[in-house]
């Protein structure tokens, strides 16, 4: 078990956002969490990454409990996130942004090799290397954010609403990329999405989150066929 979230509850100023959520991710899996706006998807990722404290429950990663560990220490252990709206460092160049992804790991990661690999996947980042990240379009920033999170060869990649604000054509492209990273690099991915169809298509397994509770989980293909999911999230 790479990631084991058990009975996790998170509250904002006493208002509960997640109630006893349990979720597991195995090494090499691509798992998605789907749900409507406000279901607690982002909160779940924030708790896993350490941006929100857990009110109760436990998070363990690669066999170690990390529930109270600070964010940067979890990152050092191999948990990386592509946050909502990319959050690139806009006043830094594209190259500098990528370099921040290997902060503290510059001796452990084959930086040149990783850059070559990522430039293959995201050619635009090589082209724009010396430009400020603020000059990139939304889709390009999203690509930069993914590359920045992947450059350190993380054990687990968390992806938060990557499709938000992207043109449909780009959404397909980004999902395809995530699939490539998972299938070819063996990158374990936990994907949180409103776009249920696109994420279920590339996932192995999925969880359905509704107002802070996991109401359904299982094989992604089965969920795609499940009438409840089809009605609520696929609009058919």
């Amino acid at each position: 078990m790479l990631l084991d979230v058990s009975d996790l509850s998170v509250a904002y100023k006493g208002v509960s956002a997640l109630h006893s959520v349990s979720l597991q991710v195995q090494e090499g899996e691509l798992v998605s969490v789907i749900g409507a706006n406000g279901a607690g998807k982002t909160t779940l990722l924030k708790a896993i990454v350490g941006w929100e404290p857990a009110a109760s429950g436990a998070i363990s990663f690669a066999g170690d409990e990390v529930t109270r560990m600070r964010t940067h220490l979890r990152a050092r252990r191999g948990i990386r996130i592509v946050p909502e709206r990319a959050r690139v460092f806009t006043h830094m160049t594209v190259y500098e942004n990528l370099m921040m992804g290997v902060y503290g790991l510059q001796n452990e990661v084959q930086v040149g090799e990783r850059l070559d690999r990522l430039y293959d996947l995201f050619p635009i980042l090589k082209e724009r290397g010396s430009q400020l990240a603020s000059t990139l379009s939304g889709g390009e920033q999203q690509q930069l954010s993914i590359a920045r999170a992947c450059i350190s060869k993380p054990k687990l990649l968390l992806v938060d609403e990557v499709s938000m604000g992207l043109m449909p054509r780009l959404v397909d492209q980004v999902f395809e990329l995530l699939q490539t990273l998972n299938r070819e690099e063996g990158l374990t991915i936990l994907l949180v999405e409103q776009n249920a169809l696109a994420s279920l298509k590339i996932s192995h397994r999925a969880y359905v989150l509704e107002t802070g509770d996991i109401v359904l989980d299982g094989d992604a293909k089965e969920l795609l066929a499940d009438p409840r999911v089809r009605e609520a999230y696929l609009g058919v």
């Binding site: 941006w51 996130i81 946050p83 959050r87 460092f89 921040m100 902060y103 503290g104 790991l105």
Partner: peptide
């Protein structure tokens, strides 16, 4: 560089091991 990253976005920087 880590200072610049923190200046721009402390939360994002922390998720990069800073």
């Amino acid at each position: 560089l880590s200072c610049f990253a923190v200046r721009e976005n402390e939360t994002a920087a922390s998720s990069m091991g800073i």
